[in-house]
Write a protein that binds this DNA or RNA. Sequence first.
DNA 1: CAGGGAAATGATAGCGCTGTCATTTGCGCT
DNA 2: AGCGCAAATGACAGCGCTATCATTTCCCTG
Lengths: 332, 332
Amino acid sequence: MTTAEPDAPHSAPTLSAVAKLAGVSSITVSRVVRLPGLVAPETRGRVEAAMRELGYVPNQLAGALASARTRSVGVLVPTIANSIFADTVQGLSDELEPLGYAVILAQSRYDAMREDRMLAALLSRRPEAIIMVGSPATDDGARLLRRAGIPIVETWELPASPIDAVAGFDNYAAGETVARHLVAQGRRHLAFIGGDDPRATRRWNGFRDAALAAGANEPRRLVLERNASGSVAALAELPGVDAVFAANDAHAIGFLSGLRAAGLQRSGPASAQPVAVIGLGDLEMGRLIAPSLSTIRVHGDAIGRTAAKLMLTRDGPRHVDLGFELVLRDSG
Amino acid sequence: MTTAEPDAPHSAPTLSAVAKLAGVSSITVSRVVRLPGLVAPETRGRVEAAMRELGYVPNQLAGALASARTRSVGVLVPTIANSIFADTVQGLSDELEPLGYAVILAQSRYDAMREDRMLAALLSRRPEAIIMVGSPATDDGARLLRRAGIPIVETWELPASPIDAVAGFDNYAAGETVARHLVAQGRRHLAFIGGDDPRATRRWNGFRDAALAAGANEPRRLVLERNASGSVAALAELPGVDAVFAANDAHAIGFLSGLRAAGLQRSGPASAQPVAVIGLGDLEMGRLIAPSLSTIRVHGDAIGRTAAKLMLTRDGPRHVDLGFELVLRDSG
DNA sequence: CAGGGAAATGATAGCGCTGTCATTTGCGCT
DNA sequence: AGCGCAAATGACAGCGCTATCATTTCCCTG
């Protein structure tokens, strides 16, 4: 333990600075960092002492350039705030961080041009894989990914012709499941509320097709802003509707709040509700409110972990369906 | 437009490959990418065509090594899933991405050892700044940051002796504000529920001190798991309590749910509630539930944006208090 | 019309590491 | 005694860029 120096000199110590201090060659220091087993214990001790003394922090940038292994992953999500995608990011980073991977996070904000820019920006950092929510919105984006020559994992969907690997669930089937359930409960005037991104649209398609097939009226679709508050007022646009499928739980909870304000809410089971509401995502909140929210539970965390596993190996299935479940509570 | 090649050959095209194809030196290609104004339009056109033809994606790793500018920021949060910190990450990345910065995200999971590991891992990527929630938990962590010689922004707190810059609010004062309000409403039996991380503890300290000073009984403190469901059952541990301050809105909503289950909830204003509940964070959900949640509103997004600005310049104030507001609704 | 300077381009030397191939030493075995 | 081999260490080139300092060309100006 030396006396605390008056903060850092100006440039960070390098491998060879450590090497000089320890009286070895720099490659030996490199080995102490990466392959300690190859260095004699006595030498290793000296080198470690030198590293501590200088406060050496390896420069992974240089290492990555020399070895062509960056140990980083590019992660692209529409948005991270307030969103269920955060679970996926958490899941994959929990899986990857212990392995020494860095997560480079980018947000597309549901904007195709921005998505392409972010994709190029990510790729320019030479990640060892890209994990993204959905599929690239443009052909340019897809081409960029295909040419990158690294594992690409598309998530939250099951694209018919994926670029490489997939970890998701069937959004169309989720919509169907909800519609069938609602019709089976005697609801006939259905509506779908939420965004118009590809996944929401797929849910809508399944919802409408199944509703029609089951004999309900033509369902309505209301495209809303991306926040729950927008859905509070959605009711006014949907006269006569007796069941609503929201593209996600936040919208569902907002809609529920609008229903309460309109006096269209009873305490008691789903069958007592003038308007049934079903969400998607299974937020913890949904379980805690009254009436508790019925929802399609998806496995955001498992999607992230699975995506991580898919990027780590090229063997095994490249197309994992994590499924979903209809969780029935009081709202529908 | 050439005919689509059968996907990439195996290694990515380099600057000099583009240069050869365009018949210029590689430095000229580099300039076309970074300083297009310095290259004659005719030359630039040829180079751009060559880049397009080869699908050139610059290697920022190599660029960073050569220029000592990585255009990346390390961001360390306790957790990203389901958390208010996501707003902060969103805010700072919205500010930084247009400037070409990459966000390298790491999670400490409220674990000091993991925090130190993540800090070292981030630093080894040579970010141009580190933005973190809170202050380093250990001296080792603090030393690492101090020695790194880059801007460090601590957020969500106002540490007395920060490493460098700060963008946060006064957690102690938030606790005080809540306690004073509650006591002014005639509540005397207060409790605090939530985690025991440094920020929650600071809130608790302010809460307790102000409660005592205002003449309430000694408040109770209940440390809970980090999810809202844990707080549903908290009520059982708190007999006789007539007001609760939850360390965050999720806990508050969970507790509200426990109250409802116990029949301890009235419709109507705060004064009618047997137990007043106040949260912190101002989640959108809090506004949508019944009773609507009173809360301390903090500006997670602004914290992120401010942190971004603080890392971009060394001029101006390095210590920004973004404040908070007590938002009174129906729960307390 | 000589001289000066701006505009456009290039040659060279690293950035801080790692891959690859030596080289040296010590030791067991026939 | 001599050989072979594993263990430990090192020399050297180069990853794909950019900083820095030329060099060349051309045009404007007094």
